[in-house]
Design a protein around this nucleic acid. Structure first.
Length: 200
DNA sequence: ATAGAGATTGCCT
DNA sequence: GGCAATCTCTATA
C-alpha cells in the first residue's frame, strides 16, 4: 500500500484543468496546523465558463487567489462563519480550483475532536468542507499560501496511496446553477470514507 | 444604500 | 424537516 509520506512538490501536478486534478487528489493527505486527514471527496470548479464557480464573474478580494498560480491554497468564508479550503488548479492565466469536501481523519484524533466539539462520532470530524477546516485548524490566515512550500502551514502529502481508477462521481453539492455537471469526485465505499484510521 | 442569495453547519421541533 | 448564525458579493435604486 504505501511508503513514507512525502510532500507533493511538482507544480505541474496542480497546473491542470480542475476536472483532471480533482480525482487525482483523492487519497492524498491534507496536512494542517492541528491535524491531518486523507482526502476522500472533492469538487472541481472552473472559471468563466462555470456559473457555479466563485471565479465566474472575475476577480474580487475574496477569490483573487483562484486567479493566481496553481498549487496555492484558496480559503474562503462560507455563510459568514465557516472556512472552506480549495487547491488552486488550472493555468496561470485561467482560474480554477478544487474544493476539498471530506477527509478521513488520520490524527491526532484527540486534538481534532477538541476542535470539533459538535462531532459525536469520529466520522463526523471532517466529513464536510467547513468541518475539515475546523478540525485541521485551517483559517483565512492560510488563504493564498503555497502548498509546495516546505514550511507552509498547510501542505499536501503523498504516502503512496493511488487515486481510484474509477472514482465515484456525482453533481456538486449545495449549488443551484450548473447543478447538472457531475464534477464531484469521491472514493468508492463512501459509507466508510470518513472513519478514522490508526496513525501508522 | 439596501436587500437577497450563497461551494454550510448544528440545533430545534 | 425547518431555520438561525452572519460574511461576501451581486443586483437594484
Amino acid at each position: 500500500m504505501s511508503g513514507v509520506a512525502g510532500q507533493i512538490v511538482d507544480r505541474d501536478f496542480f497546473a491542470r484543468d480542475p476536472l483532471e486534478l480533482a480525482p487525482d487528489l483523492l487519497g492524498k493527505l491534507l496536512v494542517g496546523p492541528c491535524g491531518r486527514g486523507r482526502i476522500v471527496e472533492v469538487e472541481a470548479y472552473r472559471g468563466e465558463e462555470d456559473p457555479a464557480s466563485h471565479a465566474f464573474r472575475g476577480p474580487t478580494p475574496r477569490n483573487r487567489v483562484m486567479f493566481g498560480p496553481a498549487g496555492h491554497l484558496y480559503v474562503y468564508r462560507s455563510y459568514g462563519m465557516h472556512w472552506c479550503a480549495n487547491v488552486v488548479a488550472s493555468h496561470p492565466d485561467r482560474a480554477g480550483a478544487v474544493l476539498i469536501r471530506a477527509l478521513q481523519p488520520v490524527g491526532p484524533i484527540d486534538e481534532m475532536s477538541r476542535r470539533r466539539p459538535a462531532a459525536r462520532r469520529p466520522e463526523d470530524l471532517a466529513n464536510g468542507p467547513g468541518k475539515l477546516c475546523a478540525a485541521l485548524g485551517i483559517t483565512g490566515d492560510h488563504d493564498g499560501l503555497d502548498l509546495l512550500s516546505p514550511d507552509a502551514g498547510v501542505r499536501l502529502a503523498d504516502d503512496g496511496v493511488e487515486p481510484p481508477t474509477s472514482p465515484t462521481t456525482g453533481p456538486r453539492v449545495g449549488i443551484s446553477v450548473a447543478a447538472d455537471r457531475p464534477w464531484r469526485f469521491s472514493l468508492p465505499a463512501s459509507r466508510f470514507r470518513s472513519r478514522p484510521v490508526p496513525v501508522p
